[in-house]
């Protein structure tokens, strides 16, 4: 690994920073109390963030669109999840479809 020491330091900083981010929500909450409406909005923001994370992780690679194999695999996984398939089936189907598409020459 190039830059071994800086990379290790950056990783430790990420661990510390992430913990502080996790800590800051409850700390803020202990000082300010939020009405039910705001609470619902906070729960909604979680779902919106995760949906955006799914879409960007599935469809993009750097600043460009990813090839078709991964999105199609994730789509199959999503459809299975919609039909209430178990998590493990969803995950393995997504990987399996993507792998088969790549085997067939789809990037």
């Amino acid at each position: 690994m190039r830059n071994a020491v800086p990379t290790l330091v950056a990783m430790l900083a990420l661990a510390g920073g992430t913990f502080l981010l996790r800590l800051s929500g409850p700390a803020l909450r202990a000082r300010v109390s939020f009405p039910q409406r705001v609470e619902k909005l906070l729960e909604a923001s979680t779902v919106v963030l995760l949906a955006a994370l799914t879409a960007t992780a599935a469809l993009t690679e750097g600043h460009a669109l990813a090839g078709a194999a991964r999105p199609l695999g994730v789509l199959v996984g999503g459809l299975l999840a919609w039909r209430k398939a178990p998590f493990l089936v969803v995950v393995l189907a997504a990987a399996g479809v993507t792998a088969l598409l790549r085997l067939a020459g789809v990037s």
Partner: peptide
């Protein structure tokens, strides 16, 4: 990549929010 491992993470997050 040939094993399709990169499709697993988005699939799991999607299953969680469905």
């Amino acid at each position: 990549d040939a094993l399709g491992l990169d499709a697993m993470f988005p699939a799991v997050i999607m299953a969680l929010i469905v």
